[in-house]
Design a protein around this nucleic acid. Structure first.
Length: 438
RNA sequence: GCGGCCAUAGCUCAGUUGGUUAGAGCACAAGAUUGUGGAUCUUGGGGUCGCGGGUUCAAAUCCCGUUGGCCGCCCCA
């Protein structure tokens, strides 16, 4: 046993683990690609102030931060949003709008391990900058659903809870609450699902008891699960802002419905998302069974680019984490068999034949065929066993008899049949076979 | 930062009231097998029983500490 342990919360990634992760990345990348998002990357290590500026100094407790040899306070990135805001902000004037970007990267948070949460993890991040209207939300939520559907997940497996901080503020304003009170109500809402009535102490402590009729109307708002119910509840209030905002809700939901994805999205004002920089629609993706933590989360953050020193640029984005997502795929049996098999395994007669075999091996590899061969001389029996165990579909038999006649045998390992092929025709033969059975 | 449970081979786990040199299955490797298959048989490598201390004639086993893991709380960008 090695005397050096992995750091707590960090995970080693053996080939089979990486095969799974790469599979996720491949599908996400493909989804982003067809939606016209451009991939970017950025440093893993950032100035600590970047996160202080966005989230306040209490965030430091959750960061891997230290002082580097130049005396700079730095932190391993815990999220992508501040970074991408800086990138976009710096070139905002030259980038064609809308700016649709995505990335896949590793993030670090100094936290206690839990199911679906570690100290390092990967996220798929997608953001749209420069579009203030709900069209950006439509595009982004559509991409989010696509990122899940690409794995065979259906509306029976997950759903997206769509909420809106603006609607909350307009509603609470119509109920007569000022902004400080409204903000506190939102923190209550954020915790209500977990803590129940106890969540209201946050409000009581700051402003005294909340009148019962107000509390009832807040809870009724929380209970809304559909657009018609939402409209019915808000219509009597008659506020202009509410009516305008409801039109945007209709726009988002009818668009997603038109894509055939209406069943994935639920109106759910219980989602407000902890940090206060979200400025409009917010959404989270959850497992339908409800035994996993959030699968993805996002929302609009129109003030953040400017707050981080860039121009005034509206933005909306989301992130999917790999850990909970992997758990979901595993639970639903949607992990593909991530076998890593060669196309062709070479069975080689001996030392002299090995030298000759390198011609075929190289030619096949140059043609893009995945070829394996035993690195040491082995008895034929062993080699056939190795060929079978490798998962290859073809064995190339390069024995003394064959090579002396200028041919090799190509054995179909599945059907246990063999044909002799002239050496010059091997590449074409193998390629045809693989294409034909592809 | 707090709480509960746990720690024996690469993996899954046995291991008696404390008792000789700590075991099995799977996996891996070699041979049987010098030109045709995933089988079988034989054999082998692999362990500071997480680590440190204590009790004892004797500790994987009991006690204390510590590290790590799992699960939850806080938090969740």
């Amino acid at each position: 046993m090695a005397s050096f342990q992995t750091l707590p919360g960090f995970r080693e990634c053996y080939p089979e683990d990486l095969a799974l992760r790469s599979h996720l990345f491949r599908r996400w990348r493909q989804a982003a690609g067809v939606f016209g998002f451009a991939e970017y990357d950025a440093p893993v290590l950032e100035p600590l102030d970047l996160y202080r500026a966005k989230s306040g100094s209490e965030i430091e407790a959750q960061l891997f931060s230290f002082t580097d040899k130049g005396g700079r306070e730095v932190a391993l990135r815990p999220e992508m949003t501040p970074t991408v805001c800086r990138l976009v902000g710096a070139r905002a004037n030259t980038l064609r709008r809308p700016i649709k970007w995505f990335s896949i990267g590793e993030f670090f948070r100094y936290e206690r391990m839990q199911k679906g949460r570690g100290r390092c993890f990967h996220q798929f991040n997608a953001d749209i900058f420069g579009e203030a209207g709900p069209e950006a939300e439509i595009e982004l939520i559509a991409l989010l659903v696509q990122c899940f559907a690409a794995f065979g997940l259906t509306a029976d497996d997950f759903y997206i809870r769509l909420s809106d901080r603006n609607l909350w503020f307009y509603y609470l304003e119509a109920l007569g609450l000022d902004e400080p009170r409204a903000r506190t109500v939102l923190t209550v809402v954020d915790r209500y699902e977990k803590n129940g009535d106890a969540a209201f102490t946050a409000y009581t402590d700051a402003f005294g008891p909340l009148p019962e009729d107000l509390k009832a109307r807040i809870l009724a708002f929380l209970g809304v699960k559909s657009l018609p119910a939402l409209e019915a509840m808000l219509a009597p209030l008659g506020a202009e802002k509410l009516a305008a905002r409801l039109a945007e809700w209709r726009q988002v939901l009818t668009a997603l419905d038109a894509m055939g994805w209406g069943s994935f999205v639920t109106v759910d004002l219980g989602v407000v998302r902890g940090l206060a920089y979200y400025t409009g629609f917010v959404f989270e993706a959850f497992d339908r069974r409800g035994d996993l933590r959030a699968l993805a989360g996002g929302g609009r953050y129109d003030n953040l680019v400017k707050k981080l020193g860039g121009p005034d640029l509206p933005a909306v984005g989301f992130a999917i984490g790999d850990m909970t997502f992997s758990l979901l795929l595993e639970q639903r049996g949607l992990l593909p068999p991530l076998v890593s098999a060669p196309d062709v395994y070479c069975v080689i007669g001996g030392a002299a034949e090995r030298l000759m075999a390198f011609r075929e091996i190289h030619a096949l590899r140059a043609a893009g065929v995945r070829v394996e061969y035993p690195l040491r001389d082995l008895a034929f029996g062993k080699q056939f066993k190795a060929a079978a165990e490798s998962g290859a579909r073809l064995a190339l038999i390069l024995g003394g008899d064959e090579l002396a006649r200028g041919v090799v045998k190509v054995r179909n390992l599945g059907q246990r049949s063999e044909v002799e092929v002239p050496r010059d025709a091997v590449v074409a033969h193998v390629r045809d076979f693989l294409a034909g059975n592809g």
